[in-house]
């Protein structure tokens, strides 16, 4: 009994923070499966040229709207393009738009929230009123307008989605900072002569990484969904096509060729769901109040 106990405590002490997070994350089954699924999808999209035998825009009118077969695993679309190839190539667009847009949104949201929470007063007032303004825009309408005006490139879509989705995170980070500002260790750092930048980045940001990471993960799913909506409305990325674009291209033929919409629909659904589960799992794993 004593031997077991001492053995266990020693290993618990030597476990690093990341090891602990990983151990707790693994207990969340769905999150683990989701993570594996996401890694799998990412690998497929990276390996796109190796695992597709058709190009995503090679049309073959003689084989238009064919049901899934040995030749075309997921069937073909109206002008006979191979849906499997389009889907794999499309995953590159959808995933990268999701990741980059989420990163933009997290960086902007964190900086604005941190500045508002740390400095308080007038800075806080101005930044938060601005945040509320951005929040109360009808986002889809704004996206449509902006995309209609500017060039519809991948980078622009990423930026537009990222720059309209940060307010929630800004509020979250501001709240965390307001609480952290009162902590004695922040005051201690100031008493030691630390500059603002050191206090903000080394002390405060480090201590609210957990909610930011969780939020960032959920945000990737949200960004994929936003891009799909844009594409579905015909304002998305067409070359190579994103999942939303493929979905859009099949919407008129849903009755006789449902595979054109089902395949990208399922991919969007599963990927967004997986990001949400991973976010959930991370929330549980990073929450210091839960039992280790």
């Amino acid at each position: 009994m004593l031997a077991i106990k001492s053995g266990k405590t020693v290993s618990a002490l030597e476990e690093s923070y990341l090891q602990m997070v990983w151990r707790r994350f693994k207990r969340h089954r769905l999150a683990l499966i989701s993570l594996i699924f996401l890694i799998f999808i990412s690998l497929l999209s990276l390996a796109a040229p190796l695992i597709t035998q058709y190009s995503y825009d090679q049309s073959d009118p003689e084989h238009s709207m064919e049901a899934p077969s040995k030749l075309h695993w997921l069937g073909t679309d109206r002008i006979g393009r191979d849906l499997y190839s389009r889907l794999i190539w499309g995953s590159r667009i959808s995933l990268s738009v999701g990741l980059v847009a989420a990163a933009v949104s997290v960086i902007v949201g964190t900086l604005i929230g941190a500045a508002a929470g740390y400095f308080g007063g007038v800075v806080d007032d101005i930044l938060m009123r601005f945040t509320e303004m951005v929040m109360s825009f009808p986002v889809i309408f704004l996206l449509l307008t902006i995309i209609a005006i500017i060039d519809r490139s991948v980078v622009n879509v990423m930026l537009v989605i990222g720059l309209t989705s940060w307010p929630g995170l800004a509020r979250l980070v501001r709240g965390q900072f307001l609480a952290l500002r009162e902590m004695d260790y922040v005051e201690a750092a100031r008493a030691l002569g630390a500059k603002n930048s050191r206090i903000v980045f080394r002390h405060m940001l480090l201590n609210c990484m957990a909610p930011i990471i969780v939020n960032a993960t959920l945000r990737v799913g949200g960004a994929i969904l936003a891009e799909s909506s844009l594409s579905f409305l015909g304002l998305g990325i067409t070359d190579p096509p994103s999942w939303g674009t493929i979905l859009n291209s099949g919407r008129h033929y849903m009755r006789f060729a449902p595979w054109i919409t089902i395949a990208p629909g399922v991919m969007i659904f599963l990927t967004v769901l997986a990001f949400n589960y991973v976010g959930d799992g991370l929330r549980d794993a990073l929450d210091p109040h839960l039992k280790r």
Binding site: D184, E187, P288
Partner: peptide
Amino acid sequence: LRKIRQNMQMIFQDPYSSLNPR
């Protein structure tokens, strides 16, 4: 002020919140 602070230090009341947990 930063220089002076080398000479004037503080010990805090709550040892649980005065050390950065990370």
